[in-house]
Nucleic acid binder design. Structure first.
Lengths: 316, 316
DNA sequence: TTCCATTATGCTCAGGATAAGTATAACCTC
DNA sequence: GAGGTTATACTTATCCTGAGCATAATGGAA
């Protein structure tokens, strides 16, 4: 390949780009994602001439398909779905994915949009009530089988080590951020429908709703990013109503992280960081002692140098 | 906009995609980036039909243009350079950027590639010898002027607050990760050449070499990502030779972070994390007491659950 | 009314991690 | 052997974190 010009003059290598949205909300302690096509796809559409930017294109598609306006948005990842779709000779099509955070509001009637619980797609990711039974009962045995099916013993060991690390087996700690790694592992082990869609062999056995194309993979990317981000950026508040109790805030964090946190320590961290302020009002219609209502201090983000939200999600 | 089909059948919205590489090396305590076109551009080229994936396309371009093979690679960001280039009606062109880490080796003779120190492009980012004089002498006054030029006093205050936070003015702490925010701020304030390239007004005054198109912005993104990542992932070792002393390792980290770290604490952290092991040999040809040579323990990455590298870069 | 379940909130305490400094060792050049 | 330079071992004070105890409000059941 000779020294090529830095920019192709008028590129003959035209491709198509899709914009895909992982739109997240948390309602009553359950994380939801916006889906279309009977909960089998994420909102998405091609990047078109008319779009002034990638984000405006994305917003247009999401609003058209779901009737839901897009609030906070950040880019996730760009990939050419290729080996995945199989047709190696087809013109290139790349997907540019985004993570969006909102509140679950009224979805326009008659629209295709639908909020789905994200743990329907990843039942092994919810550890709020301890490790889900299906990990020990289904996932681990299947991964053990996959490891054993390798030729050499060194590959067998490497496979099982990888499985144990990502799924917290053999007394290893569960790491809630490895969402994508776990999905990729299940894909490679051919124990989810997406993996056997192309290759005819194998049988999908691990429970969990799948999606078209790469969408469940994109969703895994979004969840992983969000679980990592809530630990050092105050993004949870994008998912909260204007006023909330500290327990509601905690439940939202736990819903996203898929694990429980120590209540008193959680409150201490939130309060000492001055991320919230009391509204003066109290929560109504609750069981137990009424809680103070808080609101997010938007000012703090500007005041501090990119305020870090610490959450007690490090160890344990 | 009616409910559109989820995937355009055969998209008429063809676009072109460029692959851009921020290829980093550290030599003798100085961070370098691979450049072409007389150090005014990053290696890049269009994503073509022949490329099997985005990464293979990138590797092909970098090797063709610089003769340097690509090692560790991770995706940075995808954007449509648009408002930036001005031609709002031109067909869409998106850039997909990557961060690559290697060692500075022999660049093939006659190739266009050249290693440039990255602080030539961002002289305000090197705080290893304290805050650079040009911040107080040039950057701060210019940003003050930009803030004052706003209409309302509230905007004036907001502008100056932003400047103070990103550049650590008014006794605020310097945050080395805000590389992109600082660049964006200088761009908005029209005090760098890129900003006045389109708009004829203004005069570029802040020192620092600029690049074609969005390339300096992409470089800022890469530096920011790397500065963030060395704190929690063992990526520094991608930049080190097979054997190194702890001081060399420290100097590399400091070069990337643009700030000094406490020597004894640095060693303690590195050693207690078992990221390195002694080779048994000692460093030759040095001043002072000879240091032990270490090598990176590749095994540790697999052993631990995505081993976190802690570095003493948090406070201070 | 009392007791209990439930949630809110204040406080303590031990262990670990971190920043920063002191002290000593090993090598070189002059 | 004095002085510069780097390596390496300890010490200390502080802060952070995880974990638990205790008490305060509230509503409903006994």
């Amino acid at each position: 390949m000779a020294n090529a010009p830095r920019k192709a003059e008028t590129s003959i290598d035209a491709i198509a780009a899709d914009l895909v949205a992982v739109l997240v909300a948390v309602t009553e302690g359950e994380p939801k994602i916006m889906t279309i096509a009977n909960a089998a796809a994420l909102p998405s559409g091609p990047f078109q001439f008319g779009h002034r930017s990638l984000q405006t294109g994305l917003r247009a598609w999401v609003e058209a398909q779901t009737g839901h306006p897009l609030g906070y948005v950040e880019q996730l990842y760009t990939f050419a779905d290729h080996g995945r779709t199989g047709d190696a000779r087809a013109p290139h099509r790349i997907s540019i994915s985004y993570l969006g955070l909102t509140r679950e509001d009224q979805v326009r009637e008659g629209s295709e949009g639908h909020w789905s619980g994200w743990y329907e797609y990843f039942p092994w990711e919810d550890h709020r009530a301890g490790p889900p039974a299906l990990i020990a009962k289904i996932v681990a045995p299947k991964l053990r089988g996959w490891a054993k099916s390798a030729e050499s013993t060194s590959v067998q060991r490497a496979r099982w080590q990888r499985a144990a690390i990502t799924f917290g087996l053999d007394d290893r700690a569960w790491n809630e951020e490895l969402v994508l790694q776990r999905y990729e592992l299940l894909y490679e082990a051919s124990v989810i429908p997406e993996a056997v869609r192309d290759k005819p062999a194998g049988e999908a056995v691990v429970p969990g709703r799948s999606m078209i194309s790469d969408h469940r993979r994109i969703l895994a990317t979004g969840i992983a990013r969000l679980r990592a981000k809530i630990k050092y950026r105050p993004v949870v508040f994008e998912l909260m109503p204007a006023e909330f109790t500290l327990l509601q805030l905690q439940r939202s964090v736990e819903a996203l992280a898929g694990r429980l946190v120590h209540k008193q320590n959680f409150r201490r961290l939130i309060e000492q960081q001055e991320l919230v302020e009391e509204t003066g009002a109290m929560a109504a219609e609750t069981v137990g002692r009424p809680a103070k209502l808080f609101r997010f201090r938007h000012g703090i983000v500007a005041e501090r140098a990119v305020a870090g939200t610490k959450l007690p999600l490090s160890r344990s």
